[in-house]
C-alpha cells in the first residue's frame, strides 16, 4: 500500500521528524486509512468537474490603500529567536 520509503519522503516534504517507531506506525495507519479512501478511486467520475469552492464569488479585492500594521516590537513579540531587528534562524546548510 504505502512503503517505508514513501513515508520517509512524505515526512521530509512535510518537515516532520519521525522516529523509526513512528515511521512504522505511520506506515501501517496510513495504509489502513488509504484502504478506506480507495473507495473514491473506484468511482465513475467521467465528466465531473472538480469543486474547489462551494461558493460562487468572484473578484473579491481590496483597494490599494495602506492600513497600519504592527510595530516592530509587536511583530517580534512572539518570536523565540528575535534579534534587535528581526527573526533569527539557524544556519541553512
Amino acid at each position: 500500500m504505502i512503503d517505508d520509503e514513501t513515508v520517509r519522503h512524505v515526512a521530509r516534504l512535510a518537515r516532520l521528524r519521525l522516529s523509526p517507531d513512528e515511521e512504522q506506525v505511520m506506515r501501517e495507519e496510513l495504509s489502513g486509512i488509504l484502504e478506506h479512501i480507495d473507495a473514491i478511486r473506484a468511482m465513475d467520475l467521467d465528466g465531473v468537474p472538480p469543486t474547489t469552492h462551494v461558493i460562487t464569488l468572484e473578484n473579491v479585492v481590496r483597494p490599494d490603500v495602506p492600513v497600519s500594521g504592527l510595530t516592530r516590537d509587536e511583530a517580534l513579540r512572539e518570536a523565540a529567536h528575535a534579534t534587535d531587528e528581526g527573526f533569527g534562524v539557524p544556519r541553512m546548510d
Partner: peptide
C-alpha cells in the same frame, strides 16, 4: 502528524 502526512501524500 498523521493528517499532515496523509495530506502531503
Amino acid at each position: 502528524k498523521r493528517r499532515m502526512m496523509l495530506g502531503t501524500f
